[in-house]
């Protein structure tokens, strides 16, 4: 028994040192944000972010270890070295850049408010005053909701899926989230019948930042630059379009 474990440990050690490539890349993902990432019934992770993660690992010649993490603990978990990078539709914002570094953006979509069709109020600070507005906790939308709709009653959720559930159940008057996620994850599925975007999609520079990037710990410039280069390469050689078209009708890369 003891000998066997020692043997196994030695074998593992040998594989690590003689293996063709570096140690695996541990990627923090969320798994509750379709179509960017979601979990199948059998537990496998799927989605735009997941495909992107696999493509990046392949190009860096490192094995991908996807680590699931609840959204509001994402940055703390990265800092605690539970994984090496976050590929989870995380927007690049000033506030977050105080804690972590980001790669170049890999997609950029505006935010949108979803409510019942013809709800009888408008997507303005006055229109949403006193209304129950759902957002996912620790997102750029929490920041935007507090800034742009200060008089709305903010209701915070751990995952975007819970926001949709409560919006569909009628516990919320409206919700604020990524417009594309809203379209694909809610409006285009059964649950979202009778709901629509309220007003135009928008982007608040201060809160929403400049698109979504991969986050790495500060001081790990090598990893950050390698990831940035990979994103650019994926965009340039057309692989981006392949991944994009699996999930979206529009190009999500933005300008």
């Amino acid at each position: 028994m003891n000998l066997k474990t020692t043997g196994l440990a030695l074998a593992a050690l040998a594989m690590m040192s003689f293996g063709a490539h570096a140690e695996p890349l541990r990627v923090g993902v969320e798994g509750a944000y379709p179509p960017f990432s979601w979990k199948e019934a059998d537990g496998t992770l799927k989605g735009f972010d997941i495909d992107f993660a696999h493509e990046v690992c392949k190009r860096l010649d490192r094995e991908c270890v996807l680590v699931e993490q609840e959204w509001d603990g994402m940055i703390p978990a990265l800092l605690a070295k539970k994984f090496d990078t976050i590929i989870a539709s995380m927007s690049i914002t000033e506030e977050r850049q105080k804690k972590v570094d980001f790669t170049v953006p890999y997609y950029n979509t505006p935010a949108g408010i979803v409510a019942r069709e013809n709800p009888g109020f408008e997507a303005t600070a006055e229109g949403l005053a006193g209304k129950r507005l759902g957002v996912q906790r620790a997102t750029t939308h929490q920041c935007a909701a507090e800034k742009l709709f200060p008089d709305a009653e903010l209701v915070l959720y751990a995952s975007q899926e819970e926001v949709w559930q409560d919006l569909a159940a009628g516990r919320l008057d409206a919700q604020l989230s990524d417009s594309l996620q809203g379209l694909e994850g809610f409006l285009n599925v059964d649950m979202g019948k009778g709901f629509a975007f309220l007003g135009d999609t928008f982007n608040d520079e201060e809160c929403h930042g400049s698109g979504a990037g991969f986050a790495v710990r500060k001081g790990e410039e090598d990893l950050r630059d390698a990831l940035s280069d990979t994103i650019k390469a994926i965009r340039e050689d057309g692989t981006y379009k392949q991944i994009n078209d699996k999930y979206f009708e529009i190009d999500v890369y933005g300008s």
């Binding site: 509001d72 603990g73 940055i75 703390p76 800092l79 605690a80 506030e95 977050r96 105080k98 804690k99 906790r137 620790a138 929490q142 920041c143 507090e146 915070l156």
Partner: peptide, 14 residues
């Protein structure tokens, strides 16, 4: 705890 989670979420703290 909700207040604590709000604070952590808003400022990305652990």
């Amino acid at each position: 705890l909700g207040a604590g989670r709000w604070l952590n979420g808003r400022y990305y703290l652990a």
